[in-house]
Write a protein that binds this DNA or RNA. Structure first.
Lengths: 118, 118
DNA sequence: GGGTAGTACTACGTCTTGTAGTGAGGTGTG
DNA sequence: CACACCTCACTACAAGACGTAGTACTACCC
């Protein structure tokens, strides 16, 4: 899949936080901290959609962009991808399980229990 | 942490597969498929140690390189890093739990149970 | 019809990565 | 000892990713 750059991630964050598709202008308005040229935002949106992270639909002359997948799906996929790098998935999973903090272990446990019940 | 390039990963794989520190020459000999100049291997080893993935110790004139962390630790760290990207760790963890295959879910479950018992 | 918004296309500097050359400093061997 | 050779440190360079932005053109609103 490949990771995202910093600006790219900021923009994905904005779009993930929204539940409606946004235009480049709207995204630009939501990045207050940085003072970016409108075309910069457009370029990045364009790259993100070319990479498959965003889908876009026409709205008049403008494009409206929205995430192709939820942030959670993206994160889960990154995690699975990391897992694929290992030769010994079991060892990596075990180590991962030990590394998550207590409350999170609880969440994992619960999700796995639900799985089991299905 | 940042990911590795393809050659970098191949070289890490070689070193992870070995249980003794290797010199650049030895690593080069173990990459048969590619026909790399010795200096190429040295450069990559150098970069990897500067990035903290390898440690090196002198052996006469040569350096011997070995992984700074096990592959499993690396993978687990990548997974945790991915997890940090999310706003909602619970949702991401839940989704991850649902995405792992059956046998792997079992391994996770077991690791978590051990945790609980400690 | 001029300002504004939006698009497509192009550009450019920086960083990373793959790949390698060069030159200097030891080392062993005949 | 002289020469071949290993290894290192340093430098280089092309390609691709990313941040950043300008230009030129079109369409719309007042």
């Amino acid at each position: 899949m490949k990771g995202l750059g910093e600006l790219e991630r900021s923009i994905m964050d904005i779009l993930w936080a929204q539940n409606t598709p946004l235009t480049a202008r709207e995204v630009g308005r939501l990045i207050e901290d940085r003072d970016l040229a409108p075309t910069t935002v457009m370029t990045v949106l364009d790259r993100l959609s070319r990479k498959g992270f965003l889908t876009r639909t026409r709205d008049g002359r403008a494009w409206r962009y929205q995430p192709a997948a939820s942030r959670d799906a993206y994160v889960a996929e990154l995690m699975l991808e990391a897992l694929d790098l290992t030769g010994d998935r079991n060892a990596a999973l075990t180590r991962f399980a030990r590394a998550v903090s207590g409350p999170e272990a609880e969440i994992l446990r619960r999700a796995l229990t639900e799985l089991e019940e299905k």
